[in-house]
Amino acid sequence: MSNFFLYLTSILLIMAGLAAILYKRNLIKIVIALNILEAGVNLLFITLGYRPGGTAPIFTMAPELEGLSMVLPTPQALILTNIVIGFATTALMLTFAVLTHRHNDTMDIRNLRGVESND
């Protein structure tokens, strides 16, 4: 039970991100909240594969490898992909935010909700 709070941290990050996405009004702050949500999911996935006594799953010159158990490699491989996907999504959404600001000169979603179908 010693490092259960790693799970707690990831849940808090996920919930903070989700709540901020639903309640915040600024376009860029919603993107920051999305990144926090992704960081929470990544932390949750990595703590799944953690072994307290283990080493990184890399065979190096270290001799005393016999009795040592290694940390699981698959979560790390997947989180590598998820981090780059998170960066790609952030870059795209920031471009959308910048273009929306250039068109409508506001970054607040309340002002954007007004007229939808204009010509």
């Binding site: 799953p57 890399i58 065979f59 190096t60 290694m70 490699p73 698959t74 790390q76 491989a77 997947l78 590598l80 992909t81 780059v84 996907i85 790609a88 999504t89 870059a91 795209l92």
Partner: peptide, 26 residues
């Protein structure tokens, strides 16, 4: 030697191809 690299590029290489496509799309 790096098992994570072997999982990323060999055992689950198709995910990494999808991942490079995601960056190309953006």
């Amino acid at each position: 030697n790096n098992i994570v690299a072997s999982v990323v590029f060999d055992y689950r290489g198709f995910d990494t191809l999808g991942e490079a496509t995601v960056l190309f799309i953006v």
